[in-house]
Structures are given as structure tokens and as C-alpha cells.
Design a protein around this nucleic acid. Sequence first.
RNA 1: GCCCCCGUAGCCCAAUCGGCAGAGGCAGGCGACUUAAAAUCGCUUCAGUCAGGGUUCGAGUCCCUGCGGGGGCACCA
Length: 846
Amino acid sequence: MGGYDFASLQTKWQAIWEERQPFTVSDAGDKRPRKYVMDMFSYPSGDLHMGHAEAFAFGDVVARYWWQQGFQVLHPVGWDSFGLPAENAAIKRGTDPREWTYSNIDQQRAAMKAYGVSVDWTREIHTSDPEYYKWNQWLFLKMYEKGLAYRKDSWVNWDPVDQTVLANEQVLADGTSDRSGAVVVKKKLTQWYFKITDYADRLLDDLNQLEGRWPSKVLAMQRNWIGRSTGADVDFVVEGRSEKITVFTTRPDTLFGVTFMVVAPESDLAAELVAGQDDAQIRAVFQDFLTEVQKSSEIERMTADRPKNGVFLGRYAKNPITGERIPVWAADYVLPDYGHGAVMAVPAHDQRDLDFALKYDLPVRVVVDVNAPVTGVIPALELDENGLAILPDDLEPSNPAETGEALTGEGRLLNSGVFTGLSKSTGIKKIIEALETSGDGRAAKTYRLRDWLISRQRFWGTPIPIIHGADGTEVPVPYDQLPVELPSTEGLDLKPKGQSPLGAATDWVSVKDPRDGSDALRDPDTMDTFVDSSWYYLRYLNPNDPDKAFDPKEADKWAPVDQYVGGVEHAILHLLYARFITKVLFDLGYVGFTEPFSALLNQGMVLSGGAKMSKSKGGVNLSDELALHGVDAIRLTMAFAGPPEDDINWEDVSPAGAAKFLARAYRLAKDVTSAPDAVWSEGDQNLRRVTHRFLSESPGLVEAFKFNVVVARLMELVNAIRKVVDSGAGAADPAVREATETVALALSLFSPFVASEMWEMLGYDSDVATYGWRKADPTLLVETSITAIIQVNGKVRDRIEVSPKIASDELEKLARASEAVIRAVGDKEIVNVIVRAPRVVNIAVR
RNA sequence: GCCCCCGUAGCCCAAUCGGCAGAGGCAGGCGACUUAAAAUCGCUUCAGUCAGGGUUCGAGUCCCUGCGGGGGCACCA
């Protein structure tokens, strides 16, 4: 590798930055406008890996860009330092998780500093510090007071490897744990929840505000996850039972087609219905069925298109609108925790209901004519004595009972009493109105989103600040007794046993009831670490404040975060939780905004051989690449590889090429012979034009995250300077200095070490990073002539050099006079001439 | 099954508003320097934009259909 000694440059500049702290934000008396740029903080695994390196490289481009643009930029880092890897490591070594965690942090901090990220190191936070997690507890208590934190007994996701419960968001689509990879099982347990479902509408609707500033993919994922459906709740009276069964449906227009009802077998409702039923045979059959259902694993349950099984419960319900008597079944295709755990079955128009009806020989009744025109005049239909329509033969739709295909399309209602003939959407509206009038139903929404299960049965997390009194009352720990600190691990067995290890820390868990001093027990569970990360962006604003979680005045000044950078793996989990907690803090009056992250950039992954790069898998890894090519070249490689949100195949990019380019840039700084006070305007005008075009275009490109294009333009500029130095005006030309200084300033966004060195070589002792972007001189951006293209029928036939200010009619005259055009037109008739001065003329001929 | 994103040279990728398909890099080729090689420097080959249809004076760009790739949700009523 020729060029320069990147290793000694890295050492030199790291020491200088350590001393100067150029990125520490004091704010006081600083009149510059503010920007808050934040990278997703890291779990302290000890090493910097490719994923971190890429995210920090991109985040740093943005942070350094705003510094150059004259802002004071808050760009903090912290550590997501609670969690299972530390705890598991501690179990393996018989040590305290604190040791592993804090030594990893030291190691990783050093790696990050060596990576040259523009960070305000005075604001570093660790979520495992009592000074931090105290405020998780404070947040919990605030939410508890508002009824947003509560405990309930429910079927939960249980990770049998990590021996703890998981939130829905932590279970992958294949039914395995996102952390341990174990197949998650269902357990019925009493757990703590945050009531995120209260915020479902706001979490969904506020996504519209983020449109265009968050990746559309993330917005789509969040919308899917929240999964709002609109429709109606309909109440069905059950014979011999005082309470009705309420079902949720998105198709109230098909109410006349209901031929049976289905409830989830494991729901309380099913048990009640069977209990109220005299036939012992039916009760026994149901019990067997329920046992069978509970045996099937979550994975089987989640596979679509499984055969549907069910049993008749021996009970009948009444259709509220037709008065018809319909049987009530229990079946495994109805889920206990969605909607009301019960459905009205319309087999003609729902594939699942149809599959079930055909299997158990239940009636199928068509109530929507999907062949009927959806728009236009509704044909007048004759009704029979039952109020049902008599249909002309050609309107007869296909019969689902014969085809096995449910009719789910748009159409017009059939056999639906006074509603017959209505379109789907009008039918939905009118039938809901009728239900509301009769009191048998109402418009309703339901969500896929579930409340956030936050308790965990592990040690290394934030203790839940609740005391359980002897009488079973939940007593919040008084605020002045926070934090509830984790005990020492001395004599404590952290091995997962399905119950929190804290429960066995006798001295810790036994407390006096704050109400009356009687014996009581602390809640032994700890919080999901996603609680820590749901508000950490606020803690950076006053990381050492002992009196409050964050300062609302600081939040007004800095928050929300202007630019958040991180991996798409948090598209739902962390980002949804942080949005939720921000809205809660807004409602509590602590912040004046409802979305935490105004803009989001998701970097792609770095792949090698089609797999994520990591040390354990062998092959290419970050530390080798850094040693081989230097920090600057690696960072530049990532910026140049393509759009930041795309994955990078390491085989497709060239760190050696990046290093070569940096060496070319560096050599220019060496070549410049003019003094720092050289008068640029006396320099080579063509080079100046290139420089100023670069100065003018780059900011927009950075703001659009087109880092790869900026680097390409920078390469262009370097090539242009080289040409002037070697075979033009020469190294002494003032324009060469101007252009080379521009290279150093722009390069500082991507490759700060070599940029700083170049800056020094060029005679400056200031920090290149905060020196300031130079404004383009508009007079150098004006083009003196422009190439107009002349087309005939859209095909380019001639090019002419014209003034950019040429008038349309003059350009047309020139175009018509062109010999190439005259030849192309020949004896054809000119039917139209489009002139877009000064760029294009198109002559349409026939 | 529903929804979202992407298909441009051998490869990674550019192409503001619909207006000359190529900025930059990798790989390749030729040349200069060198005893030779590396490094460096200069020059250079390479696609008509996945396919089909439509809108338009004009489509890589907008619309429809299909194919291919990636992702999210899913017995969700």
C-alpha cells in the first residue's frame, strides 16, 4: 500500500481529539442552531463489529455535515448494558455480570475512539448504572399511577432456554425466540404489562407525520404490526344464557349469511358455554378436543391452511338481525386473544368458515352477488314472501358449497332483507346503523397489537419498583426510595430456574410494607431492556442529573432527535416502544412533542459470502480490515458502496480502491505550493468551476443520504485537481489550493484522520471538522453555453451550442435550420414543434 | 393470501421537473515509468435500462400486467 502511513495518523489525531474534545457540546452561550444526531446505542459485546462500524460511519457523516454547516451537534453514545449475554457470561464464569459488562464497555469505547467518531464523550450513559435505571423505575411508577402499567394473568410466550417470558415483538414469525432461537411455548403466568394498546390509534395515525422522513419500509412494518381492522361488534343472544356473545367482524354486510358461530376452544367463553350444557357426552367430547388443541405447539398453530377442527357445544345463538337460530361451535381456527375470541361464521364469504362448514356439513348461504356490477344503477329486485330477492338466472353467482371457493370479492347484497341490492360499503354502513339502532351492535375497531409484556425472570435488569404486601396489595415503592438497586450477586445463584433469581435474594426481597411497616416482599422480576432504550435519547440531555430523568427545558431545546441512525432490525420493537413512551411522556406533560425521532436512516447490513460478517464465522472481519486498510479507507468504502440503506457485499467493494483514492487526495495536499493566503480568484477558472459546482451540489446530496454520490463527486474533483497539477496550471496555482482545501473539508465527513492531516499540511491549525462549509460562488456556477439537443420524433438528430438564455423562437429557428434535422424531416409534414429552451427541441413529423 | 421495496455495462452503482442513458469506482485491455515487479500516472473496451402493453412530442423515470429478487404480516374474523 503506497501513499501514507495511516496507522500513525490515526494515533496522532486520536490523541489530539482526546485532548481538544472538539465535539463536546456546552450549549451555554453557544448561539449556533442545534442539531441532535443519534446512533442507536450498542449492546457492549466487547468488540466493534461491522454492523456498528457501518452505522457509526453513516451517523458520523450526518453529524459532521451539520458541524460543517455551522450547527452545534449533539452526537452522544451510550451502552445498552443490561441484558442476558452479560448474565449468561457471569453464570458461566461464576462472576458478577457487572464485571463482564463494564470491562466490555471499556474495550468497546476504546475501539470506538480509534474509529474516529465525532462523539461528545462527556454524555456517555450506561443503562445498568443505578443512576440510570432509577429513572426506569420512576417511569414505571408514573405509568402505574396512570393505569398504564398493570399485572395480569395470561397466556404468555415462554423461552425455555433463557427461562424467561418474552414480549410478542420478541417472538419471530417462525415461533422462535429472537434472542435464544428456542421454540417459544405458551405458559399461563401473572406478568407486568405496559398498556401500549391504549395508544394503538395514535401510534398508527402518527406514522403519517413521519412519511418521507422514515423509510417507507419501517412505516409499513409498524402499520402491519399494529394491524388495525375496522368493522363492527355484533351481540348474539345465547339460548339459556343471560350474557350475549359479542363477535368482531370486518364484514357486517354479510350478517344475513351467518349460519353458525365459532368460539376459541381455550377461551373462558367456551368453558362457560360447555359448563351450562347438560349433555355429558358433549362436555366430554369438548374436553378431549381442548386437550388436543393445547397439545399442539405454537408453531403448528401458526401454520396457515391447516385442517380446521372443532366440536359442537350443544348451544344455540340467535342472529340479531334475522332472528335465526344458529349452532355454536368451538374450533381451533379461532384465536382466543384476537377480537373477542369468537366469530360469526359466514361460510359463503369467508374461506376459513367455508372450509370448516364443508368439513362439518354446516349450511352455506350466499348473501353477496359478486357478479353484480358494483357501480351504476342497482337493478330493482323482486322480493319473495320471506323478503328474499328473486334473482334473474344470469345473476346467480357460483355456489361456494360446490366450488369450495368462498366469494370474497366486491358485489351487491343478496337475500339480505331491506339491505338487498346495496353495495358492500353501503351495506356495511347501513347494517351497522341498524345494529346501533336496535342495540345489538356497534362500529368497532380491533388491533393485532398486544400490550407490552415487560417483566422478565432474570437478574441483570431494572428491578420492578413494586412491593407486595402481606394482604396481596401492590404497593409502589415511594419515589424517595428509588432506585431499588440490584443486590450483590454474592451467594446468589443466577442460573435460570424459571423464576427470578432475585426472589432468592432473601435480604433483598424481604422489606417492610411502606404503608404500615409489616413484612412484605419486593417484586422479584426485572424489566425488559427495551424499557431502558425507550427514553434514553432524553437522558443524554442531562446524563448526570441526580434529581430528574431529564430536563424538560433541555428537551425543548434539543429534542426530538433530528436524525436517528440504526439497523432495520429495530423497525418494530425498539422504535415502537420509544414512540409509545414518548407519547406517554407527552401526556404526562414532560415533553412537548409526540414523536421521538424526526428522521430515521436505516443502514443495510455488511455481508460477506452472503452472510452477516462476524468473527465467529471466520472469513473477513472488521479488525483485520481496519488493520489492513485503515479506519479512513474502511469508512469511505462503506459510504461509497451504494445507498446507505442497501446491504453491502464486501466482495463487491474495494477498500484497497478507497485507500488508493485517499492516498491520491493526501498527495495533493503535499503538492500544493501556494501559501494559505493565495488569492483563489486568480487561479484556473475551469478548476474553480469544478470546485464550486461540488460545493453547491454536495449539501443536498448529503441531506438526501446520497453519500456514495458525494464521494463520487469528490473523486471527480480530485481527478480534476491532479490534471491541473500535472499537466495544467501546476501545483502553485491558487485554484489548486482552493480545490484541495475543499477536498479536505468534504473528506472530513467520511475519513476524518486523513482529512485532518491534509488540513494541517495546508497550513491550518484549526479542526477541519468544525471549520465550516464554504459557500459556492454563484458567478462560477453560471454556464456560458449549453448543449441543446434537437430531436425529430423523439430521436436526437443534432446538438447545438447555445446561450443558456436563448429565446424559444430563436432556438426553434436554429433547430429548423439544422442540416441534420432537414435531412431527417425530409419531405414529411411537420405537425408539431415542442421547444423547451434552452435544452431541447422536438420536431414531430408525419 | 394481503402489503411494501428493488431489477440500468462482467460487478458495485449515477442519471433534480419526464428531455443527450454514464458521474465515480471495481474488474479487464493498452501504454508510460522500472533491469523487472509492485506502486504511481495516462488512455481505453463494455449496456439501451428484466419482459410486454399504455400515457406522452419525448419514458430508465409515470400507469397497467407479468417475471425475478428482498422484506413485513398472516387460520387476525
